[in-house]
Design a protein around this nucleic acid. Structure first.
Length: 747
DNA sequence: GCTTGCGGTATTTTT
DNA sequence: TACCGCAAGC
């Protein structure tokens, strides 16, 4: 009766045909998660269980939303179609509510959206006004803290209550100011979109009912990445008896830093009584060796349901490990492999994944040198480029004349002689008039310097003319006109590479507007899409090597994958090493990277890396110890074997070590020195060395470890965060530990 | 009001 | 290293 069930395995089918009630699909990497989602949507429609408009499917990324829409539409092409169903990101879902009922949220009709740049600019301004040193409280850090509280649904009061805590007090003060300011500006940031929507859903029955009607079947992708706020939104909407289908994989939860709560997926049955759970464990993506190595890695995590992926295809290339001398060597080796593998797989089927954006550079240089086409995915985004943002600000100013954020950004771009002093005068005037800056500025107050007054007058004439041109011209021509007339394009006259690129970017923006309008979007729709990062089409030139972060790679797959920078400090990242939870998340990140590979997987590291402005010795990632030596092939010039089972029972405990230095150290008392660096090996025995948190250590110190009990320090290696101690425990024998990570206590 | 250059500093991931 | 903010000079 329905053709959607034919190409599914038993578990997939079970999930697809499941009827009403809560359903959790634990979908391992490459197990056909999107397939299940799309087929389930198609099945529901085909069986007539619900009308398309009663289906809401939310994803975490635009990419996923796009893919789901395309694939689901293909499936139901012959049927009634999917029109009316909502398939989009959480933020899009929320934005549509706020756009439709702005007054319910106390927002103006054309409220604007603050992107991270706008937020930072605003926070910087507030810090100045509050006379708080941006060095002690960097705007980004303050915003990060606020965002954390919002996503965990903690109110300001809670922060204010921490009376002894100075930082909390300052954060609370700024948070209040920030909230007020956004309200005055008629603007929302990303978090507000969700928070205010939840608010409206709870308060306004009309809105809630309307949203519920459209979510009789509510499907949630990447459920492991939902945070408390999102969970509350789901619960609120489901209170009307909707049916939730959550699809996710706790092993791929990589957004803890953004508030993702693994408890949402790990404790699904607690939130949804009587939930039915289906596990998808058959992997269709990767070869046996890739699955085994990644499976061994992730098995070390404690917080998981625990599934074991299997595949029915056997054989395949072994996973390669290459330890390079430095990051350039790492890039060279990687690109060598890329050229070898190109004929078999094609450039478009290869990707180099890394922890941080900054790591792309040596790879870019090497690829460029070898004239191999590549593309950095998600790096500096097109929409974040200054010239594009300026152009967008003009568009925002046209769409919403009282958009103060946009006004501040472009009133003096190109330079018109309206600088900080003028803005100060205008601010005073606006405060008196109780109006937003761009509105008050229209008065051209007497208090302005004559020159500024004239300049400002011209600016508003320009805007007024833009308004009328907008009526006359089609959107693409209008943008062209605007770029020309504002002088934005003129800023980049000349033959310099950079200027040519910028002009090209502006032209691209114009064509993006054209495209959007061809699809029936208004300028307002277009700007919303931009604000939500709904990048039109990233994939215009498919046959190129992709360079991207591990986060950016989620949901993708390639024949050939390199995970670069397998070093402690990078993966796991130094900022996440301190707590167990952080390390587990980093391990998941490594796991996500490895499981992107279908046929060929390479793991690379560098012994020395240029970081923080200088070349530093590195340590092999502890995650390589999670994978047993026979699960990969070390193809380094000088192989670095892993320590034999010095048992990694507790992470953060055993340090990646050995290799070619093993012979030398084998007989010595303090066996197994961690990858020695030239600098640290010279350290005198007996000297006090400080660890990452400033505690001093020396051989002979008595220590306590929460597992191994008491012991004595035999020797120290490295210093600072790199400091490793060899400790002889009364029970448990000799261990190599990083004191800050192992939470070693000095007695 | 704008531009330049200096020095200090912070380096994760993104809807 | 690379960026940013700030101060001094135009």
């Amino acid at each position: 009766m329905d053709q959607f069930l034919e190409n599914l395995n038993d578990a997939q089918r079970e999930a697809v045909i499941f009827g009403e009630g809560p359903l959790l699909v634990l979908a391992g990497a490459g197990s056909g998660k999107t397939r299940v989602l799309t087929h389930r949507v198609a099945h529901i429609v085909a069986r007539g269980d619900a009308e398309p408009f009663e289906i809401t499917a939310v994803t975490f990324t635009n990419k996923a939303a796009r893919e789901m829409r395309e694939r689901a539409e293909t499936l139901v092409r012959d049927g009634r179609g999917l029109g009316g169903a909502f398939l989009g990101t959480f933020h899009r879902w929320a934005l549509e509510v706020l756009r439709r009922w702005p007054e319910a949220a106390g927002l103006p009709r054309r409220f604007s959206i603050l992107d991270p740049d706008d937020q930072r600019a605003l926070m910087t301004r507030l810090l100045k006004e509050e006379r708080i040193d941006t060095k002690d409280h960097p705007p980004r850090a303050v915003l990060g803290r606020i965002s954390g509280h919002v996503n965990r649904m903690e109110g300001v009061e809670r922060l204010e209550a921490r009376s002894g805590d100075n930082r909390a007090q300052i954060t609370a003060r700024l948070w209040n100011r920030y909230t007020k300011e956004k309200k005055a500006l008629g603007a929302v940031d990303f978090d507000d979109m969700l928070a205010q929507t939840l608010d409206v859903l709870r308060r306004e029955e009309v809105v809630r009912k309307a949203v519920m009607r459209r979510a009789r079947y509510l499907l949630v992708d990447e459920f492991q990445d939902t945070n408390k706020l999102q969970m509350k939104m789901l619960l609120t909407v489901l209170a009307g008896g909707g049916n939730i289908t959550a699809v996710g994989d706790e092993d791929q939860s990589i957004y803890r830093w953004r508030g993702a709560e693994m408890d949402n997926i790990l404790g699904f049955e607690k939130h949804f009584a009587g939930a039915h759970i289906v596990s998808l464990e058959r992997n269709y993506r990767s070869t046996q060796p890739i699955l085994e190595a990644s499976g061994a890695l992730i098995a070390q995590n404690i917080r998981r349901h625990g599934k074991t992926l299997f595949t029915e295809q056997d054989g395949g290339e072994p996973v390669r490990l290459f330890v390079a001398d430095d990051e350039r060597h790492e890039a060279r080796w990687t690109v060598d492999r890329i050229s070898e593998l190109e004929s078999e797989h094609g450039l478009g089927e290869m990707a180099v994944l890394m922890r941080t954006n900054a790591q792309t550079r040596p790879f870019e240089e090497e690829l460029m040198r070898r004239r191999i086409a590549y593309r950095v995915v998600g790096g500096l985004r097109f929409w974040q480029r200054a010239e594009v943002k300026d152009a967008l600000a003009y568009l925002r100013q046209v769409v919403r004349p009282d958009d103060e954020v946009a006004f501040r950004r472009v009133v003096n771009v190109p330079a018109r002689g309206i600088g900080a002093a003028t803005i100060d005068v205008l601010k005073k005037h606006a405060a008196g008039a109780k109006a937003l800056l761009p509105v008050a500025a229209r008065d051209l107050p007497e208090s302005l310097m004559p020159r500024a007054r004239v300049a400002l007058g011209r600016y508003f004439e320009l805007l007024d003319e833009a308004q009328s041109q907008r009526e006359i011209l089609d959107p693409a021509d209008f943008v062209g006109w605007l770029l020309e007339t504002t002088g934005l394009l003129g800023l980049y006259d000349g033959d310099e590479e950079e200027k040519v690129v910028r002009r090209e970017n502006l032209r691209q923006l114009a064509s993006a507007v054209a495209e959007a309008s061809a699809q029936g979007q208004t300028l307002e729709d277009f700007l919303d899409g931009v604000a939500l990062f709904e990048d039109s089409d990233e994939e215009t030139s498919p046959d190129v090597v992709r360079l991207m972060t591990l986060h950016g790679a989620k949901g993708m797959e390639f024949d050939v994958v390199f995970v670069a920078g397998m070093e402690d400090g990078l993966l796991p990242h130094a900022n996440s090493r301190e707590e167990e939870e952080g390390v587990e998340e980093e391990r998941r990140l490594a796991y996500v990277g490895m499981t992107r590979a279908r046929r060929w997987l390479g793991l690379t590291a560098a012994r020395r890396r240029f970081l923080f402005g200088q070349s530093q010795n590195t340590q092999l990632s502890r995650f390589l110890l999670d994978i047993s030596a026979d699960q990969f092939e070390d193809v380094s010039d000088q192989p670095w074997q892993m320590a034999p089972s010095d048992e990694p029972e507790e992470f953060g405990t055993v340090v990646a070590s050995r290799g070619r230095h093993q012979q030398r150290s084998a007989g010595s008392a303090d066996s197994a020195p961690p990858i020695p660096s030239r600098r640290s090996t010279g350290r005198k025995i007996g000297a006090v060395v400080t660890d990452g948190s400033g505690v001093g250590w020396r051989p002979g110190d008595r220590v306590r470890h929460r597992r191994f009990g008491t012991g004595v320090v035999l020797s120290c290696r490295g210093r600072g965060p790199q400091l490793q101690l060899v400790v002889y425990f009364d029970r448990g024998g000799r261990k190599t530990l990083v004191p800050t990570i192992a939470k070693l206590e000095k007695l």
